[in-house]
Amino acid sequence: MVRHIVSWNFKPELTPEERREAGALLAARVNALKELIPFALEVKAFCPPLDSSSCDFVLYSEVPQASDLPLYQNHPEHQAVLPLIQKYLCDRRCCDIEG
């Protein structure tokens, strides 16, 4: 199994209200991916994460094996969420963990 963990911050120009609205919208769209991408074992958004975090938005997903990761990332439903992510988020960090 591969765990795909990505974190972002909101773009600094967003107001607190815009951040709340964007976070809710993004979380809903990301969480829906689990049902839309058949081989995704798990897809979960966290917004906001705990106060101890150094990021604003986190995506946690799991796929069966490393060769599925590009299939997940290039899946049309995943690609459809990317424009929203690019609109509201910056400072992307990613970690893929096997096992």
Rank of each mutant, 00 (worst) to 15 (best):
F39H: 11
V81C: 09
D91I: 08
T15L: 07
P76G: 04
E42N: 10
S67W: 09
Q65N: 13
V43P: 04
S67H: 13
P16A: 03
A66M: 14
A32K: 09
R92K: 15
P64K: 06
A32M: 01
I97E: 04
K34N: 08
I5G: 02
V81I: 15
F46V: 14
K11G: 00
E42W: 10
R93Y: 01
Y72A: 06
G99W: 00
L33V: 04
P70D: 09
L26N: 02
C90W: 06
D51I: 06
A66P: 07
E62A: 15
Y60M: 14
C47V: 12
E42V: 10
L71M: 13
P38Y: 06
N31H: 02
Q79P: 06
D68V: 02
E13T: 02
V58K: 00
M1Q: 11
V43T: 04
E18V: 00
R20K: 09
E13L: 06
R20M: 09
G99M: 08
K87C: 03
V2C: 13
R20I: 01
Q86C: 05
E62D: 09
C95S: 14
D68F: 15
V63G: 01
Q65R: 15
E35A: 15
E35G: 13
C95D: 08
W8L: 03
K87Y: 02
V81S: 02
G99P: 00
G99C: 01
L50P: 06
Q86L: 11
L50M: 05
Q86Y: 10
E62S: 10
L41G: 05
A24F: 01
P76H: 07
R29E: 13
C94H: 08
S52W: 14
S7Y: 07
R92M: 13
L14I: 10
F39E: 04
K44L: 03
D96V: 00
E42P: 02
F57Y: 12
R20L: 11
F46W: 10
P49R: 00
A45S: 13
P49W: 02
L50H: 10
V2W: 09
F10P: 09
A22F: 04
P64Q: 11
E98V: 14
E18D: 10
P12K: 12
E35L: 15
L89N: 02
L25P: 00
V63C: 06
E21W: 07
A24Y: 09
S52E: 07
L59P: 05
F10E: 01
D96Q: 12
G99E: 06
V6Q: 05
D51K: 11
N9L: 09
R3T: 12
I5D: 00
E35F: 07
L71N: 13
D96W: 10
A24K: 14
P38R: 12
F39K: 10
L71W: 01
E21L: 12
L41I: 11
N74K: 10
A24T: 14
F46T: 12
N9K: 14
E13R: 09
D68R: 10
I5F: 05
Y72C: 07
M1Y: 08
H4D: 07
L50Y: 12
S54N: 12
A28K: 13
A40H: 07
K87A: 13
L14H: 05
C55N: 11
N9F: 07
L59W: 05
V58D: 02
P64V: 03
P48K: 01
H75S: 10
L69C: 07
V63W: 08
E13V: 01
E42Y: 04
L84Q: 04
M1D: 12
I97A: 07
S53D: 08
A32F: 03
C94L: 07
